[in-house]
Nucleic acid binder design. Structure first.
Lengths: 214, 214
DNA sequence: AGATAATTTGACCGATTGGTAAACATTACA
DNA sequence: TGTAATGTTTACCAATCGGTCAAATTATCT
């Protein structure tokens, strides 16, 4: 019998690389909508265009697929926060952070929904990542914000809740997309809503944080 | 055989009233965490402390339970927006709206998560309510905000995105509770975080919307 | 080309799914 | 108290679940 990927130490084949990509792509489609429990391997196999045993040849369990997906997406998703620069000036840093997050909500909404689903379920698979790497990163950036506040560059405010508010307002356009479309109506549901959102949010945060325009 | 509730036209019994309450309570527990597809009648019956066929005696299908739950929760959830008063002054109205929403995120987070789950899945069960009653309500309140802006009471801004941003920032504390706790660390995960959030968000929105303190 | 390793599939497994049937137990009301 | 309506449970159903297995197919390398 063939040796499944996970038990092997050798190099990955071209086919492996391709098929694993196809499967994770399909898994993202399914998991991001129905969550872990609500998704089935059959669904994923269907979307991926292959048989269920074939999917299970590359990922031995449903959990393994989900795990691989989370790991990959977690990195991408935190990229904008990592880019948050202590040496930049507050206004442009915050503006571009908001823009980047909104672009991600627009361009890769499934990734956002995958996380949202995980959070709603109490993050049973990634609690360690939250308490570890994520917390460290946020702690670091919170310190940057606090420094800015002490230097009088922005108003004094709780840096953690500031970060939460940027996360929530931007990811809202991915996670609650249906609601946003429904409320805005068909005429405002084009891609232009992201530009409107960016304009509004940038102003809200720049003014709300008492940032002096330079 | 007994006639299930849904097919009956007569008054509801005391027992019916009680048991339906118990079931919906249990269903809220389960649906809010796992979503519709990820939840099972067995789970709900277990939490409700009754047998599966007994649950199905009161609600003939899983969908019927979910439907009843959504209908009930939708009303409660929109209460704060309904209370948004055109005759009040912008500062106090916005402050109290934020407070109310945060209180709900703290006191009835399961309701928030139920909706969030529904949104993530594309709102297959409540799209009509979104396009109808919800949109109407938001349209009405958006008009109020626009009036305030025209009167110079608050800065000009897109009223829809303003409402979205209040929704998302406040509900974040219910939907992403695990993440918030993980990032804040154990020492700041007491109920005090809601007070911190309220302080931060009120300032953000009051200043961000250019509301003059009176 | 032939051998070997990698990939794919159909048939299948026990457990769980949403839901039903009918016997049994309890309640409400005359 | 009797009885009809209401409520509850056990046993069960077909469909679907995550996952296995061995056989068949395809790709790779000499």
């Amino acid at each position: 019998m063939a040796i499944p990927r996970a038990a092997r130490t050798q190099r990955r084949t071209r086919i492996q690389e391709e098929k694993e990509e196809v499967i994770l792509e399909a898994a993202l489609d399914v998991f991001s909508v129905h969550g872990f429990r609500g998704s089935t391997i059959d669904q994923i196999a269907d979307v991926a265009g292959m048989s269920k045993p074939n999917v299970l040849y590359y990922f031995r369990t449903k959990e393994a697929m989900h795990r691989a997906l989370i790991d990959r997406v977690l990195f991408t998703w935190l990229e904008p926060l990592r880019a948050f620069d202590a040496n930049g000036n507050p206004e442009s840093e915050i503006r571009s952070y908001i823009r980047r997050k909104l672009e991600m909500a627009r361009d890769i909404p499934r990734e956002s929904r995958l996380f949202a689903n995980e959070m709603l379920q109490g993050a049973p698979h990634i609690e360690d990542e939250l308490r570890g790497p994520l917390k460290s990163l946020v702690d670091e950036k919170a310190e940057v914000i606090r420094t800015w506040a002490k230097a009088g560059k922005i108003a004094k405010c709780d840096p953690y809740h500031l970060i939460f508010s940027i996360w929530s307002t931007t990811q809202h356009y991915a996670d609650f997309d249906v609601q946003v479309r429904a409320v805005l109506g068909q005429e405002h549901s084009g891609e232009g809503r992201f530009e409107d959102a960016a304009r509004y949010l940038e102003k809200l945060f720049v003014d709300g944080l008492g940032i002096r325009h330079t």
